[in-house]
Design a protein around this nucleic acid. Structure first.
Lengths: 224, 224
DNA sequence: GCAAACTTAATAGTATTACTATCAATTTTG
DNA sequence: CAAAATTGATAGTAATACTATTAAGTTTGC
């Protein structure tokens, strides 16, 4: 994965940022260090002032890239889902068997991220933690409908749609292909959260993975 | 449901509040109007100052009931899940068939709340909307582990556990009874959110319910 | 019936947040 | 090399999320 990915650029909807953080050194430091800082203190406690201090830059400079910390979160989440989408497309493209394809796709969207080496300035392991802990906050807002119209959630929706199409390729008559796809992606994040904080209401742990759970669940759902 | 429920008191963990809001007229107005206000402007924009203005009382008086707006959200969510738990126990208690019991339980935890009349000062329809839009924010915090230890999430966890036991009563060998239970409850909230805001990634709408989706999903999962 | 205890309201104050605006210094580029 | 763009520094604002104090009103217990 390493070499291939490092040559492509993950594409995030342009309206999310004021100035593309990939276009400068400061921009990359903003992205790279915001991941470290949000992972460390949580999105609620995260401020541009603290980030400025961490990267030896000024609050006002960061505001030239993102108009708010909410937009920065939208950037990070879009980047993450675009990265997952790339892996999904890449790792399923040469599988001829539709069921194998689906199982692989479920693995890609539900697995724990264990290594970070694809992109120099981005720690994918910590970004994955941020997605688990903060993703819901990006859409659970009063502005969700207008932001959805602006296209801030296209990447996420496209990922769910790809998964749905793989399910329909196995069984066109399954009535809940969209709902099960959104349940797999959101549900996997939730199971990862539960195994870290509410162990009594999940079966997932170091040995039992959300991947296995959702693979079985999906196969049983669509094959009957 | 009406008469029976209005005579009982929904019990919320005591540590959540400084002074029991059920114990005074002001307390009830705080609860009742916070539901209306949070539903109207969203939890992020909600402040005790605005609530004070709405109920013709003072910010500082509200702080004597709850030490923060976060604690108030924990109160509302605990109250909601305790209310759902009551309905679950009550409406399944006299069903002899374990599968019928489970299907009824899934219905109770996934259905849309349509009427509010059980409790005088609480609008259950709007409270349900708050749970859909804000529940995740109550636990997606850096304080989740210490607050979990304090018992702030016991009601929710007990509800999931009850559902799990009904699944195990049908099939003791099903390996993911806890995970599917937590997926049903969290997933249903998510599907309700999607049908309001991201219609392209759900099959649920006015005619297709999350209830039917999760009932089928669960039956297929545990019976194979 | 009245004092003590408690509850509520009003006011003021604090540190922090989430920005915006301005201007100067530095770097890039055409 | 001059113009344009980028960054840094400083200052300022309205709002947030509280805490503290005091006074007025209400409830209660003997």
């Amino acid at each position: 994965m390493k070499n291939l990915l490092s040559t492509i650029k993950i594409s995030v909807p342009e309206k999310i940022f004021l100035k593309d953080p990939e276009s400068s050194d400061l921009g990359k430091r903003i992205i790279g260090n915001s991941i470290l800082l949000i992972d460390e203190i949580g999105f609620d406690n995260f401020t541009f002032k603290k980030l400025g201090a961490k990267i030896g830059s000024n609050e006002s400079s960061i505001y030239r890239y993102f108009e708010s910390k909410h937009k920065l979160l939208l950037y990070l989440t879009s980047w993450y889902w675009a990265w997952i989408e790339y892996q999904l497309v890449f790792s399923t493209s040469n599988l001829p068997n539709p069921t194998e394809k689906l199982l692989k796709a479920i693995e890609v969207v539900t697995r724990t991220i264990k290594e970070d080496n694809d992109f120099l300035h981005i720690n994918e392991v910590k970004l994955n933690q941020i997605i688990i802990n903060e993703y819901s906050k990006s859409y659970l807002t009063k502005e969700v409908d207008s932001e959805n119209k602006e296209g801030y959630f296209v990447v996420y929706k496209r990922l769910i749609t790809r998964l749905r199409d793989m399910i329909l390729a196995i069984n066109v008559d399954y009535k809940y292909a969209s709902s099960i796809s959104s349940t797999i992606v959101e549900g996997a994040l939730h199971q990862h959260f539960l195994k870290e904080h509410f162990t009594s209401i999940t079966d997932c742990n170091e040995t039992v993975t959300p991947t296995k759970f959702f693979q079985e669940l999906t196969i049983n759902a669509i094959k009957s």
